[in-house]
Design a protein around this nucleic acid. Sequence first.
DNA 1: AACGTTGAGATACAGTCGTACCACAAAGCT
DNA 2: AGCTTTGTGGTACGACTGTATCTCAACGTT
Lengths: 200, 200
Amino acid sequence: MPRRVDHEERRRELTAALLRIASTRGLQAASMREVAAEAGVSLRLVQYYVTDKRTLMASGLAELTARLDRRVRDRAAALGSGLPPRTVLEVVLGAILPTDDDSRADQLAWTAYYAAGLTDPANAVDGQYAPHALERWLTGVLTRAIEDGQVSSDRDPRIEVVSLLALTNGLVSSVLGQQRTVEDALAVVRYRLDRLFPAS
Amino acid sequence: MPRRVDHEERRRELTAALLRIASTRGLQAASMREVAAEAGVSLRLVQYYVTDKRTLMASGLAELTARLDRRVRDRAAALGSGLPPRTVLEVVLGAILPTDDDSRADQLAWTAYYAAGLTDPANAVDGQYAPHALERWLTGVLTRAIEDGQVSSDRDPRIEVVSLLALTNGLVSSVLGQQRTVEDALAVVRYRLDRLFPAS
DNA sequence: AACGTTGAGATACAGTCGTACCACAAAGCT
DNA sequence: AGCTTTGTGGTACGACTGTATCTCAACGTT
């Protein structure tokens, strides 16, 4: 039945299957055959559309960073512009935390990739997912909040942002490991923001 | 040459070999044969002294938590008792960060175990390494600091400690991923502590 | 109508994995 | 002295891995 087929679409399905396995059973379990079974196709087709395992893994990582980036971007865009810095920070950091099943699955897969990249330079995660862009954006937001007098001027916006991102990262870990609920994690973030933005 | 041999000692050597592999090439690469080669013995001996791979992995995790715990405990004990809460926090949090090659290797192995445990319930890390004990201890320290007036009474010691530990955890990740130096990470921790303990 | 390209199935191959098994030498015990 | 335990080597087995190959049906082009 060789109807003409959209290779890009096929690859996306296979990548999604890979990430589904990675988030549930780990990257370890993500063999070519398992990906084929998860996608409901033959092993041969995985080879055909994806050629290598390396390229499959690479597109899995690319898809993952795109998803995480999109989640933050969408959440921020949905709230329009011109909202108070404190709200921006809360929304953005909240978008990183694994709140629903999808984001939790993605964060699990991300953690697997991250750990793999620490020892195997092959599929290394360059930085955090777009860390520089996010970091610089939030630093700008916080800097403006200081200039507006909403935040004490003896705060270092750069270090505050780094600190908030690292905190959120740590909270993500503990939520994934089920030592904490997402609600508790969000409460910690809000607590930090409350101290950063004193009641006017 | 069947001289009588210390099984416990042998197991410790094999466990060390496992962790050496895990921290350099990842848990993925830690096969029985690789552990044997790293320890300079035959595959058969690894089987003999360690029987299973599961038990080898388990003792690797146990050794790792023991090391990390010991690092914190030693560092704290080396400073004697009766020192200011701010110093206690700085020393303990600093002991978690990967400062030298050994602690960096251990944290790398720990991350590998942690990631593996998220998807594979077999070798799951129960909590953080002794998270409850450490958390409760530091909370007590901070509570006393509040009672002494060194820390503002509108701070929640529980959440402050959770926040500091999650922050440190996030910093460890970024240091391992070489997005930050240990010095930068330590500076962030000190910055946070400076705000928690205002200049007297 | 003929043919080359594309999509798909099945299977083969070489390697690695954890584990099991067989053999045997050195030591301790009686 | 003889036998049982303990330590060690080598190797085999079945399962799984990524990749390569051989085959063929259905379509588009000429």
